[in-house]
Nucleic acid binder design. Sequence first.
DNA 1: TCAGTAAATAAGAATATTACTATTTAGAAA
DNA 2: TTTCTAAATAGTAATATTCTTATTTACTGA
Lengths: 140, 140
Amino acid sequence: MKAPVLSALLKEKGYKLTAQRQAILTALRHLGERASAKVIYEELCKQKPAVSLDTVYRNLRLLAEIGIVQQILLQSGAVFELTDDGRHHHHLVCVDCEKVVCISYCPESCVYTEQARLAGFAVLGHLFEVYGRCADCQQK
Amino acid sequence: MKAPVLSALLKEKGYKLTAQRQAILTALRHLGERASAKVIYEELCKQKPAVSLDTVYRNLRLLAEIGIVQQILLQSGAVFELTDDGRHHHHLVCVDCEKVVCISYCPESCVYTEQARLAGFAVLGHLFEVYGRCADCQQK
DNA sequence: TCAGTAAATAAGAATATTACTATTTAGAAA
DNA sequence: TTTCTAAATAGTAATATTCTTATTTACTGA
């Protein structure tokens, strides 16, 4: 996700482009695949401008809302990853070691859309994660 | 879900039938559809035996694991509901007012099962919730 | 460029959730 | 019934996450 795209997505919803938001994305890139809010905060503490922990949480939520990052719910807390191509995707999560593997399957179904319509809901999105045990943990 | 069934499900996994676990389920029945851990705790404070907040959280997690209750993730925190027929189901959640509506659609797909197999994962379950805006909130 | 305004931030308080530890208890077996 | 042991509990501490408020800042339009 390039800076101009971020800028456009923010503007679209009346959000502002701040140094902190850019710094959070840069940190996430440097940290690799995925990281918790706390880890991102600690990474940012090494840099300028300083970013408060609250700002990290708030912006990760906002960046998730506009689709730039995705939140993955683990037993030990949430982690975030970049949504590089702008399309959301889902994950296999190991309940023992918390390993995360991306999958391409997505429950895009006209069935639940229809059920939502009947209930009067306008669908905005969905949350889908698969829980299981990875190959390593199955052998223990 | 009747008491004998609870007993059997617990025993199956080496868990014990305690007064606290029964009390939590009873409270959830009395409270109606769904409630947060805190609300359940407060309900139980009126009764004997006393149940600590930690025990409420711990057991709601355990009861969810054995399929007797389901956790629903809201912005304001998690709520729990009884899984009356023993079959899990999913929900529409309004992002504005947090209204929850059950739906019958479930992403039981051999597609993601196959993707999990290729990644070496043994699937244990999945999390699926649909987010949107309810009829009332669309008019605001 | 400058002023105005809504949005964003930092810092700390509040809340939600989980972990730790000593004690108690349910269920199994003698 | 009594004893034994792993599991469960209560109470508290720790952590994760969100909220509140005063201040600062990004963007808009003159």
